[in-house]
């Protein structure tokens, strides 16, 4: 064993360009957090369930892209559309055949049901694709690096930042500015009242669930060129996402987006200054938030489940 500390301290002085670059890295990480937290939050807002299988849907998205490329040479940009649609359709099936049966009982049962789904789907994918990674290449047009003035930055990572921000903004606008969004918002913020108005149709619920998991699948495709596409790729990120929605306030759309990006940046910068804290930083922030603001940063009031 060697003492690793001299290596850590070697980075003690950072130039502003280095920090700025890390900020971009934080945005990449935060973009994925935001996309996943957004989907999880919308689903929670509408269905009052926590989708444990959200990371699994993220994984499935990446695999749809992989199989698309292998079997029918589906290009990356097409996969960005096809995979969310396919996984969304799968989500629709899950909602209508399984989750729907449990709306009348404690929401914890749906959490547990989605946990069972994680076990089954991950293992099925392992049997299908093997436990190791499956290859997925960065699209040629986005490979290489771009000169940002202060640094050379991978073009693909820039693309990820732009797309994540754009998608989050679009989803936010749909929910805040359209009639459909108004219904979803109403159902999210005042579920009982909305139900009383008769708006809360089954179709809206199914649609929202499908849309939420489609967002996760989209994130999966987006990360496929940068990460190991394997059946367990959703395991680590789902627990981080849970913490982020708790910090942001469950069901808060803006909260999920802002917290996602903010925590991505905080975790990345934190790792630069003190690497061992990187994994735990998000959870520590979560503990602090619960202590001082139990409903979350953007949560309005304690909602009993």
């Amino acid at each position: 064993m060697i003492d690793a500390s001299p290596f850590m301290l070697a980075q003690a002085s950072f130039g502003w360009d280095y920090i700025l670059t890390q900020l971009f890295n934080g945005l990449v990480r935060g973009g994925f957090y935001a996309l996943l937290a957004l989907g999880l939050s919308i689903i929670f807002g509408m269905l009052r369930i926590v989708n444990f299988a959200h990371g699994t849907m993220y994984m499935l998205g990446a695999f749809v892209a992989y199989y698309g490329a292998q079997l029918i040479h589906l290009p990356f940009f097409a996969a960005l559309i096809v995979a969310p649609v396919a996984v969304g359709a799968f989500g629709l099936l899950v909602e209508t055949t399984l989750l729907r049966r449990l709306y009348d009982v404690d929401p914890l049962y749906n959490l547990l049901l989605t946990f069972a789904l994680v076990l089954v789907i991950e293992d099925l994918m392992r049997l299908l694709a093997g436990p190791l990674g499956s290859p997925y290449e960065t699209p040629a047009v986005l490979s290489g690096a771009t000169n940002l003035g202060f640094t050379l930055y991978p073009t693909y990572q820039l693309f990820v930042i732009v797309v994540c921000i754009a998608v989050c903004a679009i989803v936010y606008l749909i929910i805040e500015r359209t009639a459909l969004g108004a219904r979803i918002r109403a159902a999210t913020e005042k579920p009982e009242l909305t139900r009383a108005f008769g708006i809360n149709t089954r179709r809206l619920i199914s649609g929202v669930f499908a849309f939420g998991v489609a967002l996760a699948a989209f994130a999966g495709v987006l990360n496929a060129p940068s990460t190991n596409v394997s059946p367990t790729m959703g395991d680590a990120i789902i627990i981080n996402t849970f913490a982020i929605v708790v910090i942001g306030g469950m069901g808060s759309i803006l909260g999920s987006i802002v917290t996602g990006f903010a925590l991505g940046i905080i975790a990345t910068i934190g790792a630069v200054y003190y690497p061992p804290i990187s994994n735990t930083l998000i959870f520590i922030v979560m503990v602090l938030v619960i202590l001082f603001r139990p409903a979350g940063l953007f949560g309005t009031a304690e909602r009993t489940t």
Binding site: D106, P107, A243, I282, I290, P294, T304
Partner: peptide
Amino acid sequence: VAVRRSGIYFAMITLAIAEIQYFLAFQ
């Protein structure tokens, strides 16, 4: 920390806090 919330929150919070110890044990 955790009993401040209940239901689904409690499940997610305990899961997340348990991860802190997991990573500590790893490192």
